[in-house]
């Protein structure tokens, strides 16, 4: 594992901790898209089917369990927690995310490395992760004002994707036979989706102003 991959995993972990902190400390999930969180839950469950069949390292196994557990916990809180669920922006979070699930699954049926149960679900999870942030970005754009923790959550998620691209570049030059075009193409798409957000985050940081996204 190289330093970029590790930095990517850590920023991913930090983003989840920021989200948990926001929900726990403020007992509020305003500004957070339940649709995006549900998509992440599906992404991790579909991708980590290999938990039962393949062992790569203790690190990988622990991280997989943390990602599955935390995404399901957030979804549970937003849906069922007596206090937290009251602050859910139900009327703004209207993205029809089931179309993304269907579309990505169809794509995975046709574009995969090997036509097997696990490989199709793996490809599906990669495609779905690439677009899972869309409901969240649209929710932020519609509500305009973004609170600090929500802004940092999305910032760290974007940083995670950026580091993974550096990781692939590093691996491309240091490993023989490194080819994983499904991950790389999807990863580029996924990172590109954050470009706009990064831009406005940078502007607000430079001006020392509250983050606002244009409608």
């Amino acid at each position: 594992m190289n330093i970029f991959r590790f930095a990517g995993d850590m920023t991913h972990l930090i983003s989840i901790l920021v989200l948990l902190l926001k929900v726990y400390a403020t007992k509020s999930c305003s500004g957070i898209s339940l649709k995006t969180q549900e998509l992440y839950g599906i992404v991790f469950l579909a991708r980590y089917l290999d938990l039962f069949t393949d062992f790569i390292s203790v690190y990988n196994t622990v991280m997989k369990l943390v990602f599955i557990g935390s995404s399901l916990a957030i979804v549970w809180c937003m849906r069922f927690h007596r206090v937290v669920k009251r602050s859910y922006d139900r009327d703004v979070d209207t993205f029809r995310h089931y179309f993304l699930v269907g579309g990505c699954f169809l794509l995975a049926l046709f574009v995969h490395e090997k036509f097997s149960f696990r490989e199709v679900f793996w490809a599906f999870s990669i495609y779905l992760e690439a677009v899972a942030i869309l409901p969240q970005l649209i929710l932020l754009q519609r509500s305009g004002n973004v609170d600090n923790l929500t802004g940092q959550y999305v910032l760290f998620l974007g940083a995670y994707r950026g580091f993974y691209i550096l990781n692939w570049i590093y691996r491309y030059f240091t490993e023989d036979q490194f080819s994983r075009w499904i991950s790389c193409v999807s990863g580029l798409v996924q990172t590109a989706l954050y470009a706009d957000f990064f831009y406005y985050y940078f502007i607000s940081w430079k001006n020392n102003a509250k983050l606002k996204l244009p409608a």
């Binding site: 995993d9 290999d50 393949d54 991280m63 990602f67 793996w122 990781n167 991950s183």
Partner: peptide, 10 residues
């Protein structure tokens, strides 16, 4: 195709 270990990332 080198098998499932190709999926060593998270």
């Amino acid at each position: 195709y080198s098998g499932y270990r190709a999926h060593d990332e998270l």
